[in-house]
Simulated scan of single mutants.
Amino acid sequence: MALVVLVGVGAILFWMFDEVEEAPSPAERGAVEQVLNPSADGGEGSVETPEEQKPEEVEPDVVVPTVDN
């Protein structure tokens, strides 16, 4: 039974290392640049906002559930 477990673990490890070896490198698949604020760079989907308009912080409403009899 131990031999079967060792063969199974060995097969899983072999499969994992084979998948990692065959995976394309970041240069091959094209590096993806994450843009956290798309409107800051004027890219696609950006919307210009007036200078006088400031973002406002909103406090969430606290909802306390109650049991009505």
Rank of each mutant, 00 (worst) to 15 (best):
D68F: 04
V58R: 06
E48M: 02
G30C: 09
P55L: 09
P26G: 01
S46N: 06
A40F: 06
N69A: 03
P55E: 09
N37C: 06
E28T: 15
E44K: 15
A27E: 08
Q34A: 06
P65M: 08
D41N: 00
L36H: 07
E33K: 11
G42Y: 11
V67G: 04
P38W: 07
V62D: 14
A31K: 13
Q34R: 10
P38Y: 03
E56H: 04
N37H: 05
V47A: 02
E44W: 09
P65A: 07
E28D: 15
P65V: 14
V47I: 15
G43Q: 13
E57V: 14
P50Q: 14
E52K: 07
V32G: 05
S39P: 00
E48Q: 03
S39V: 00
P55W: 09
E28S: 12
E51S: 04
A40T: 08
E57M: 08
K54W: 02
E28C: 06
A31R: 15
S46M: 03
V35K: 12
E51V: 11
P60A: 01
E51Y: 04
E44V: 11
D68K: 01
A27G: 03
N69E: 11
E56P: 01
E28G: 01
D68V: 07
T66R: 06
V63H: 15
V35Q: 08
K54F: 02
V64Y: 10
N37P: 00
A40N: 09
A27R: 10
V35I: 13
P50Y: 07
E57F: 14
V64M: 15
K54E: 05
E48H: 00
P50M: 12
R29V: 12
T66A: 13
E51R: 09
E57K: 11
R29G: 11
G45F: 02
E48W: 00
P50I: 13
V63W: 14
S25R: 04
L36G: 10
V35E: 09
E33F: 06
E33Q: 08
E57T: 13
V63L: 13
E56R: 13
T49S: 00
S39T: 08
R29A: 10
G30M: 09
D41W: 02
T49P: 00
T49D: 00
T66K: 12
D61C: 00
E59K: 04
T66G: 10
K54T: 01
N69R: 06
V63P: 10
T49M: 00
G30V: 14
A40W: 05
P38N: 03
V35R: 13
P26Q: 02
S25L: 05
G45L: 01
D61Y: 03
A40G: 10
E28A: 05
T49C: 00
R29P: 03
E59Q: 05
Q53N: 05
K54C: 01
K54N: 06
E48V: 00
P65D: 15
V67K: 03
L36C: 05
Q34W: 02
